[in-house]
């Protein structure tokens, strides 16, 4: 399996990369880790005329907390995120980053690459949706910030413009009483998710649910926020009954297709089940961080 021919540039500055993108609008692709793009190119399912490799652009991989945010540079690899000390306090992100692909993929694959690629069964989008993250897109005319819930438009399609580069993901800084978790079902370790559910729960005063975020992957044209599930949780006291109601709501919003990963009713049921499992863990972690 050999990719079709293409040109390759490796600019040293972000501005140069953006300039190239706007000059070659539509036929250039950004290369980050390459673990999503190159297999598609080898199968000749993707045939970009130009690859713009971000490797030499420095400063796009920081993981920092500000007063409000946790900011992760687009070039941060899954493994660096997983092993980062700050991320140890973000259990949802810790779960996701430790379970993507296999160790080699995690060594090279990046959060920005995954998010921009927007595979309908990839893991990061579910977490971004659950956490109401924001995605920083840089163009030649500056930055714009896109809400995760406005970002994933369709299969392999996002709100990013062809002339823009995804530079950073911003999560909200974790407050006390908040916990998150990601549970996915895979046919074998390293597989894309049959279904995956990310959950964030913030417990309010008196132990009821102050905020609930649910992101679901693998069971629709693109990952989605299970808003019906979030509504079913808001204000409730955590219990298995409440979780199950949320699971049913998330399953109801799923639009899976029947394929070799299983039939529609199975996938819907898995969304419900995984939602319950993620919620149990998220609440447990929220309680442990009060």
């Amino acid at each position: 399996m050999i990719p079709a021919p293409f040109d390759y540039v490796r600019p040293g500055e972000l501005e140069d990369a953006l300039k190239i993108l706007s000059e070659r609008e539509g036929d250039a692709k950004i290369l980050s880790g390459g673990y999503s793009l190159l297999p598609l190119m080898k199968l000749r399912l993707a045939q970009p005329a130009l690859l713009v490799d971000l490797r030499d652009i420095t400063g796009l991989d920081a993981i920092v907390e500000t007063d409000d945010d946790l900011r992760i540079g687009a070039k941060a690899t899954h493994r660096r995120i997983h092993e980062n000390e700050t991320i140890a306090r973000y259990p949802l992100l810790h779960d996701v980053s430790g379970g993507i692909g296999d160790p080699q993929v995690r060594n090279w694959g990046t959060i920005g690459g995954s998010v921009a690629h927007a595979d309908p069964a990839s893991d990061w989008p579910a977490a971004l949706l659950a956490a109401n993250a924001r995605i920083v897109c840089r163009g030649q005319n500056g930055e714009r910030i896109v809400e995760a819930r406005d970002f994933f438009l369709d299969t392999f399609t996002t709100a990013i413009e062809p002339t823009e580069i995804l530079t950073e993901i911003r999560f909200w800084r974790r407050p006390r009483g908040q916990g998150g978790a990601y549970t996915k079902l895979e046919r074998r370790v390293g597989d894309f998710a049959t279904a995956g559910v990310a959950a964030i729960i913030r417990l309010g005063d008196g132990g009821s649910i102050g905020f609930a975020g649910i992101g679901v992957t693998g069971v629709s044209d693109s990952p989605f926020a299970a808003t019906d599930a979030e509504a079913a949780l808001a204000g409730q006291r955590p219990s298995d009954d409440v979780f199950r109601a949320a699971g049913e709501a998330a399953a109801g919003m799923s639009r899976p297709v029947s394929d070799i990963r299983g039939p529609v009713d199975y996938k819907r049921a898995m969304v419900a089940e995984l939602t319950v499992r993620s919620l149990r863990k998220a609440v447990e972690r929220a309680l442990a961080y009060s």
């Binding site: 079902l185 046919r187 299983g262 039939p263 009713d265 199975y266 049921a269 898995m270």
Partner: peptide, 16 residues
Amino acid sequence: ITPPKVWAILHEKGIA
């Protein structure tokens, strides 16, 4: 014996 096959049985029997 894949998970969907087993789940379908459990579902039919009212277990899952």
